[in-house]
């Protein structure tokens, strides 16, 4: 638990625009331990999604060093799974076939993948929906399929870019509880991008608070709430204090 699996030092991202350089990410340094649940929180333009993209190897950084398992990130890697705001299910594949996509791409053992797919569907509460098509499911159910697919090839690190941001408040809360339950069971390293402070505090071990123009890591807040957590925890004073502390760091309260 004490070993850093991901380290970043002096990471910057600069875009060349017609009006000059645009600094999206300015000198960000951090370490993330194996099995940790980290949230990146901040308003639009704080660079949280950019940082996640770079961590996932989808985008290049401009400056600095960024390593996973001691290896420089310069391309996507199979042991890092990514999930986006939209579930991006393929409508021509059944639910089961969608969950099996990573296994097909990575040419994993078919028999093992078959069993794993059923386990995962069970875990996200969708056993019985394997032969359905995405077009027949609700938004919340589709994002559950996305969650199952994220775990299909058993990646070590999960990068989630506002995965429940497009869902309604009730579904989002249910999904957060589900996510925690699954994370408790698997203890994978998670980097979770959100602009919802309460969500970040509820889920995380540590919250990276980011501010915009230029995108900076303002500070890191240790979430010392006990685990396993239930929504009851939101009634506790400590939860409120942490939310308030982050709000102050973001300059929301004056």
């Amino acid at each position: 638990m004490t070993q850093d699996i991901i380290t970043g030092s002096g990471v910057s991202k600069v875009y060349a625009t017609a009006t000059g350089p645009l600094v999206a990410l300015d000198d960000v340094s951090f370490g993330i331990r194996e099995g940790e649940f980290i949230s990146l929180v901040g308003p639009s333009g704080c660079g949280k999604s950019t940082l996640l993209s770079i961590l996932g190897g989808l985008e290049d950084k401009s400056l600095g060093r960024l390593e996973i398992d001691g290896r420089e990130i310069d391309r996507p890697r199979a042991d890092v799974g990514m999930m986006f705001q939209t579930p991006v299910l393929f409508p021509w594949r059944t639910i089961r076939e969608n969950v099996r996509l990573p296994g097909e791409i990575l040419r994993l053992n078919k028999t093992e993948q078959k069993a794993r797919t059923e386990e995962l569907l069970e875990m996200v509460g969708l056993s019985g929906f394997g032969d359905r098509y995405p077009g027949e499911l609700s938004g919340g159910m589709r994002q559950r399929v996305g969650l199952a697919r994220l775990l299909a090839h058993d990646p070590k690190v999960l990068m989630m870019d506002e995965p429940f941001g497009a869902l309604d408040e009730f579904t989002r809360e249910t999904m957060n509880i589900e996510l925690l339950r699954i994370w408790e069971a698997m203890r994978k390293t998670v980097i979770f991008v959100t602009h919802n402070i309460g969500e970040a505090v509820f889920l995380s071990d540590r919250v990276f608070v980011m501010t915009p123009r230029p995108g900076r890591l303002e500070g890191i807040v240790e979430i010392d709430l006990p685990r396993p957590r239930t929504p009851e925890i939101m009634r506790e004073a400590r939860y409120g204090e942490l939310v308030f502390q982050i709000r102050r760091m973001l300059g929301v309260d004056h």
């Binding site: 190897g57 989808l58 986006f84 393929f90 990575l106 990068m159």
Partner: peptide, 27 residues
């Protein structure tokens, strides 16, 4: 094609051919 779908395929380290066959063509 949905840019997120492309990102998904890239994150899975899909080859150009795999992206074409599994995503672009049916899409």
């Amino acid at each position: 094609v949905d840019p997120n779908a492309i990102k998904l395929m890239r994150s899975l380290t899909a080859s150009r051919w795999q992206t074409f066959r599994h995503l672009l063509l049916p899409n």
